[in-house]
């Protein structure tokens, strides 16, 4: 906790984010360039999926980030509720719209992959349904955290919701193993012997890293924006009460 509290001071956090942001942005750009090169040009077509495997290089990373984002949000919410850490509230609030964006990408690209491969835009299996629920949980979190006149009350209510909704994350993760569904089981997680060829694993992992760094960049920017808006509100209140 000692490390965490070093960043409890928003000004120190702002200084830290100013130093680290250019690095994050640079690494993200580099990873996207290399990842897209491998994903689009330097990797073969799959013998079953054909060229549509290239959709996987954005679909799978987006799906990972949509769950990672929710975990960040739930972790920050727990920190906010238990230790009342001031930045945790802001982190949870900032992560929600970004996570929702990645979930939207997951659903849309999955749909565009499903049409040529399964012959349908959408099937109501456990994996797809639980990701759809994840999307609605993100939207509910966004709506709830902005539904109160007092922003701290909204943050607390949203934090409880984030923790309740976390039940959904393991369900998404294991839905393909628990139920026999159309969606294929994970082929990367078996680290010892991944069921995927290195020529395809490479673009997938680079794109996943690129998405992760993009998420972190956006998160830092969004936290900074939230902090600025909070400062503006505090100043306005101080001025209003001074008059």
């Amino acid at each position: 906790m000692a490390n965490l509290h070093r960043f409890a001071n928003p000004n120190r956090f702002l200084r830290f984010s100013r130093v680290i942001l250019p690095w994050l942005a640079g690494i993200t750009a580099l990873l996207f360039i290399v990842g897209l090169y491998y994903a689009l040009f330097a990797s073969p077509a799959d013998y079953q999926q054909g060229e549509t495997v290239r959709i996987m290089y954005v679909h799978v990373p987006a799906a990972w980030i949509s769950m990672f984002g929710y975990s960040v949000m739930a972790g920050a919410s727990a920190t906010a509720l238990i230790w009342r850490h001031p930045l945790a509230d802001i982190t949870a609030r900032a992560a929600a719209p970004i996570g929702a964006g990645f979930t939207l990408i997951t659903l849309a690209t999955g749909s565009l992959w499903g049409k040529p491969m399964w012959g349908t835009w959408w099937v109501w299996d456990a994996r797809l349904t639980s990701v759809l629920i994840l999307f609605f949980l993100y939207l509910g979190h966004i709506a709830l955290s902005r539904a109160f006149d007092d922003p701290t009350r909204g943050a607390k209510a949203a934090a409880v919701l984030a923790l309740v909704g976390f039940v959904n994350v393991p369900i998404i993760k294991f839905s393909v193993d628990w139920w026999n569904v159309l969606h294929q089981p994970a082929s990367v997680s078996r680290l010892a012997a991944p069921a995927i060829d290195p020529s395809m694993l490479r673009p997938l992992l680079i794109m996943a890293l690129a998405f992760t760094f993009y998420f972190l960049t956006l998160l830092l920017l969004q936290i900074r924006a939230e902090l600025t808006h909070r400062k503006v509100r505090a100043l306005q209140l101080a001025q209003a009460s001074a008059q």
């Binding site: 077509a45 060229e51 549509t52 959709i55 954005v58 990408i105 849309a108 565009l112 049409k115 040529p116």
Partner: peptide
């Protein structure tokens, strides 16, 4: 793109647009 360009490019374009 193996006849599936109509699905691959919109998927990538949509991803880029949202990002």
């Amino acid at each position: 793109m193996g006849g599936h360009a109509a699905f691959i490019w919109p998927a990538l374009g949509l991803t880029a647009a949202v990002l």
